[in-house]
Design a binder for these strands. Structure first.
Length: 752
DNA sequence: AGCACGCCGACT
DNA sequence: GTCGGCGTGCTC
């Protein structure tokens, strides 16, 4: 106990971004709250609810006189389970994130504040009669306020405040409008059941039959995993199974065994859209003792589910990455399905990887962690070969269905014969035609949204660029509905008739996206039922589930989409997968470009032939000899891993070294570069004493300008991640002004 | 993130 | 003169 001050101070995490742990004093007449308890504390001029993270911290560097007393204790016992508090602290530290933003990511929304009705309402803003008048008149309110009024004028039922905020209606603007009586803010009950029947797809075609027999291979894998789970100690298993090999069935059986041993199960999936299907499979075994957790739930649903978990009323939690923090007692099994998927990485602070946090949680809980994938990440396979993870392999599809046969089409030949505007090769067209005749379904993948990727001037060779970001605008729609949009900041404008740079009227569209592919297919087969699945077409809530259901029910013949069509869904009537451009992504300078391409191609090709009929895949590319395309076509994972590891070793990239990427923002380009250079210089001084550390940069970030701000980046490479992180934090601590404008990404999935 | 403070241009 | 816009800085 020495070193511990037995003062009445505690460390509190408050849900305020950018704030670290704060020290508060417990009033003399109150008991010391345990870690995980909620407390109301003064913060500036307001009061917020925070979580006690350390009930007996060492001496603080804050002067006693500056430490304020806790205003109210909300819990006598931990509200957030202590192991989750510890996991939160690990996450904040490892990913160099603030305690404030990390606790915000972990807590259910609205668990702070008045408990009475907080989780059953949401704020909806609606325009008033005088607001309508102000919207119609000019100059009554500020431009920002006018904008918000215009939005609300078109929505008589009001708009929920998060949606309004997403469209530029800041809480401040709304508050000002409300004070003027131009809008009213009402609280609306939200009381929806996330297991709403409408959101559940038909039972998986794998067949819900209660007595599915395992194949010999599956049975062997199950026995190994079961033995690992039964050891009741921390273990990680990489379940490497080809697409369609029946991994989900193993997860369920394993879960049953773990439940029977009295412990809970965390089941992580990469996408919100996959949770209903997986949850309904688990419900066949676990009935109502299944909870779901993901950010697509309304605040009320999420909070109710969270409470059910915390109260011990569920045995299985199904959810996306944030579910790794679910308050489940004593998890005995944590499954990370499609562990290689980039969705596990949160691309905002805290920039954690749900898969890696899952492993830490497993270690903490003495649980079996199963990482499942047909195309494991380089990291996981590397760890498996190094003996850190058990490797369990499923090489055959259930019912011995063959993997699709893959044809590679060299698009350079197509361009030579058909001109540079060819979108669909002759082979792909013929194959789609055959499927339409046979009333079978086709999936067509193009990992690029929009109609045309750029607008190009034939006179000056300029492109129409975003005014806020260093990218060209993407054309969406055709004819009168044409708009030019930025995919990064959502800027949108009409497509100009003349070049904005040289005024010449010789603009032409170049490049193509999913919208153009749909148009080409509709033109070739006017009677075909074609639909598009990408972020634009499923923006509305429920649209994605609806579209997938229509495809599954056979109401769509050809589904064109981005990588969203590649994930998880099981469509037994698909016998053709077309990949329009396997090269999207390969041209990028990112060190993971080949890995991503290999995974996407393998994954999407595996969507074909999951039913009675065997499947075909057609891959269009201008690099038919590129190793990631060649090896994906042969479904040769081991070959790809070996080839890619040589590259990673030669270039010193993960998994051979660790990486931390830092991006410094500034209003000017020179400012960003100078500030980044200053941090790099401080870092180099620290690194002199350290072996095996390299600092690369600063350099303009690949997206040099984003949302009107310039960005410079630098990379730290090395084998001692802790040292790297601490040195970087020390360097940044010397320039607090720069630190506030710097995003630190530990274990980045992409350095773009 | 809020919420103060402080500075600036547009009006009673 | 003051009102309200918005940029800057701080929160144990």
């Amino acid at each position: 106990l020495c070193g511990r001050s037995s003062s009445r101070n505690v460390l509190v995490a408050v849900p305020v971004p950018a704030l670290d742990l704060l020290t508060y004093r417990v009033p003399d007449d109150s008991p010391i709250p345990p870690a995980g308890a909620r407390v109301v504390v003064p913060l500036g001029s307001r009061a917020v609810t925070g979580i006690v993270v350390d009930a007996d911290p060492g001496a603080s560097d804050v002067a006693d006189a500056d430490i304020k007393p806790i205003r109210q204790l909300l819990d006598r016992h931990a509200f957030l389970p202590p192991d989750v508090v510890a996991l939160t602290r690990w996450t904040a530290e490892y990913y160099a994130a603030g305690a404030g933003e990390t606790i915000t990511a972990v807590l259910p929304p609205k668990s702070r504040g008045d408990r009475a009705d907080a989780h059953k309402t949401r704020r909806v803003v609606a325009i008033t009669a005088s607001g309508m008048e102000a919207a119609a008149a000019a100059g009554v309110v500020t431009p920002k306020q006018q904008e918000v009024l215009a939005m609300l004028a078109g929505a008589p039922d009001g708009i929920a405040s998060p949606q309004l905020a997403a469209r530029g209606g800041s809480p401040d603007t709304i508050a000002r409008l409300a004070r003027q009586g131009l809008v009213v803010v009402r609280r609306e009950r939200v009381d929806r059941d996330p297991f709403d029947a409408a959101s559940l797809p038909a039972p998986s075609p794998g067949g819900p039959g209660p007595a599915r027999r395992l194949t010999t291979e599956q049975a062997g894998a199950f026995d190994r995993l079961h033995a690992l789970a039964a050891s009741k100690s921390f273990q990680v298993a990489l379940l490497h199974g080809v697409t369609g090999s029946g991994k989900t069935e193993l997860y369920i059986r394993l879960s049953r065994a773990v439940r029977d041993a009295g412990r809970g199960v965390l089941m992580l999936v990469p996408e919100i859209a996959l949770t209903p299907a997986v949850a309904s499979l688990f419900r066949e075994t676990f009935a109502d003792r299944v909870a779901i957790q993901h950010s697509g739930l309304s605040d009320g649903e999420r909070h109710d589910q969270w409470q059910r978990i915390r109260e011990g009323r569920v045995e299985v939690v199904v959810g996306t990455r944030s579910a790794v923090f679910a308050p489940l007692d004593r998890p005995g099994l944590i499954v990370v399905d499609e562990e290689h998927d980039a969705s596990y990485k949160q691309e905002e602070s805290p920039r954690y990887n749900g898969r890696d946090v899952a492993i830490v949680r497993g270690r903490q809980a003495g649980a079996l962690v199963v990482l499942g994938s047909a195309t494991p990440s380089m990291e996981s396979y590397y760890n498996a070969l190094a003996g850190k993870y058990h490797r369990v392999v499923l090489e055959r599809r259930v019912l011995d269905r063959p993997l699709p046969s893959v044809t590679v089409v060299d698009m350079r030949e197509e361009y030579a014969d058909g001109g540079p505007d060819v979108v669909l090769s002759r082979a792909l067209k013929a194959a789609i035609g055959v499927r339409l005749d046979r009333r079978e379904q086709s999936l067509v993948l193009l990992n690029r949204r929009g109609f045309a990727t750029a607008v190009f001037c034939r006179q000056c060779a300029g492109t129409v660029d975003c005014p806020n970001c260093s990218v060209s605008l993407v054309v969406h729609g055709e004819g009168a509905a044409r708009r030019a949009r930025c995919h990064y900041c959502n800027f949108s404008a009409r497509v100009p008739a003349a070049c904005p740079l040289c005024a010449a009227p010789y603009l032409e569209q170049t490049g193509f996206g999913t919208e153009r592919v749909v148009a080409e297919i509709e033109r070739a087969w006017p009677a075909a039922r074609v639909a598009r699945l990408d972020r634009d077409s499923v923006r509305r809530k429920g649209a994605l589930a609806g579209l997938l259901a229509r495809f599954r029910d056979g109401e769509i013949d050809v589904l064109v989409g981005t990588q969203m069509i590649a994930k998880g869904h099981d469509f037994p009537r698909v016998t053709l997968v077309g990949i329009v451009s396997a090269d999207v992504g390969l041209g990028m300078a990112d060190f993971r470009a080949s890995e991503r391409t290999f995974q996407l191609l393998t994954q999407v090709a595996g969507r074909a032939g999951r039913g009675e009929q065997p499947g075909d895949a057609i891959v269009q590319t201008i690099y038919p000899n590129h190793y990631s395309i060649q090896l994906a076509c042969r479904q040769d994972y081991a070959g790809f891993y070996e080839r890619e590891l040589r590259f990673r070793k030669a270039m010193r990239y993960p998994p051979v070294v660790s990486l931390i990427n830092s991006v410094v923002r500034s209003r000017t380009f020179a400012g960003a570069m100078d500030d980044a250079a200053d941090i790099v210089q401080r870092l180099r001084r620290l690194a002199e004493a350290a072996a095996g550390v390299a600092i690369l940069g600063p350099a303009p970030a690949p997206l040099g300008k984003l949302r009107g701000e310039y960005r410079a980046q630098f990379l730290v490479k090395g084998t001692n991640r802790r040292w790297m992180r601490e040195a970087l934090m020390a360097a940044l601590a010397g320039r607090p002004d720069v630190q506030r404008r710097t995003v630190v990404d530990v274990d980045p999935l992409s350095v773009l």
